[in-house]
Design a protein around this nucleic acid. Sequence first.
DNA 1: GTCTATAAGTCGATAGAC
DNA 2: GTCTATCGACTTATAGAC
Lengths: 229, 229
Amino acid sequence: MAEASDTKERILDTAERLFAERGLGQTSLRQITSQAEVNLAAVNYHFGSKQGLIKAVLGRRLEPLNRERIRRLDRLERAGELTLEGLIEAFIGPPLELSRDGGGGSRFVRLMGRTYTEHASFLHDHMRQANEGLVSRFKPAFRQVLPDLPKGELYWRLHFMVGVMSYVMAGNDMMQVLAASRSANPDEPREIIRRVVPFLVGGLRAPLPPELQEEASEAGTTEVAAGSG
Amino acid sequence: MAEASDTKERILDTAERLFAERGLGQTSLRQITSQAEVNLAAVNYHFGSKQGLIKAVLGRRLEPLNRERIRRLDRLERAGELTLEGLIEAFIGPPLELSRDGGGGSRFVRLMGRTYTEHASFLHDHMRQANEGLVSRFKPAFRQVLPDLPKGELYWRLHFMVGVMSYVMAGNDMMQVLAASRSANPDEPREIIRRVVPFLVGGLRAPLPPELQEEASEAGTTEVAAGSG
DNA sequence: GTCTATAAGTCGATAGAC
DNA sequence: GTCTATCGACTTATAGAC
C-alpha cells in the first residue's frame, strides 16, 4: 500500500497528484507518464483515454469515501444520537480526515475540491451521479435535525455548506492574505473540523430573516408531504 | 458602454466571457480572437501576452469593484451604523449585484469565483496584491463588530466566509443535485444575498466550542494591543 | 503488456508586409 | 494598427513491432 508497484496504479497515483496540483486540463498525459516512469501508450491501453483516466482517478477513492460517510450516518441513527453537529461531522469529516493520509489521500481531497469548480461537462455528470446516493441519504437526515427550516431554505443552506467544504478541501490559501500571523496550521484536518463545525452549525441554525418567516409555517405542509410520500 | 467597438475592448469582453465559461487554461487565444472577430496577432499587440490579457481582464473590473466595497464600508462607519449584517453586505453585495448586470459583469463574477481555485502562481500573486487594500480595510471592521471572537478564530471564520462567497460567485450548481424541485432561482443575486447573509451571520457569531473558550479570554489583551497600536 | 514511431491537430508568440 | 504566414513546441491518440 505504501508504493504502487504495477503500471496501472503508478499511473493512477501520479495522475492524482498532478491533477490536484495543476488541474485536469493543465496536466498532460506526457507529464503523467514521464513522472510515473511508464510508457506514454500505457495510459490509453489501461484507461482508453484521458477522460477514462480521470474517471478512474476519481472513482478509486470517491466510492469508499462516500460509503464511509453513509456508515457514520448509519451509526448515528442506530445509536439514537443524530445531532446537527454529528451529521455535519459525518459529512465533512471523512474527506477532511483523508487529507491526513500522508499518501495520495490528501492529493485526492484537493482534487475533489477543485472538481466542483472545474466545469468539464462530462465531469459534472460523473460527479453528480457518483454523489447521488450520498445526497439522497443525507438530505432527509438534515431535514430531521432542522425541522423548523423550510425545505427551500434548507437547500440553500446545504448549498452554502458545500461551498465552505469544497473551498477548504481545495486548500485555498486566502487565509494567508487574511492573517499575517497565524496561530494555527490550516492544513491540519482536525483543526479545520474543530473550527468549521461550529461555523456551519451557526449558519444552518441561523434564524430566518423577517421577510422569510412566512414560508416557515408552510414547512410541514406543502413540500414535505410530496417528498416523503 | 453597451457594445465594445474597438479591438481592444472586444478582446477584453470576449476573453472575460470565455475565461469564465471554460477557465483560463482551457481558453486559447485563437478561440478568443475568432469569436471577437479580430485578428489573432492583435492580442499580443495590445496585451503583450496571454498573461497580460488575463491581468487586464481582471483589473478592469476588480479595482472599481473593491472601491465600491470600501465606499459602502465608509458610509456605514460615518453613519454610525456598523453592524455585522451591514458589513457582510458591504463585502459580498457588490460582487453579487454585479452579476445582475446583463453584460459582462455576471461573467466577470463567475471568473472571479473560479480564480480562487485556479492555481496559476502569477495569478495568485496578482489577486493577493489586488485585494490587499480591501482586506486591510475590512479586517479591523470585522474585529470591531465581533469583539468577543479571538483573533485567530476570526480569521478562520472570515476564511470560511470567503469560501461561501467564492463558491456562490463561481455559479456552482451543486444546488441542482440537492434540490429536485427548486422554489427559488439561485442566479438571482438579491435572492442569494437575502439567503446567505443570515447564514454567514449565524456562522460568524457561532459560540466557541468548549475547548476553545480559553483563548477567548486572551482576545482583548495580547494581539489586539499590538494590532491597534 | 510494453515499446517506438508517428499521425493529426492545437498552442502561444512573432516576423514582416501593408 | 491590422493582416498573413509560419516557427517550434506541445497535445491526444493510435498503428504496429516485439
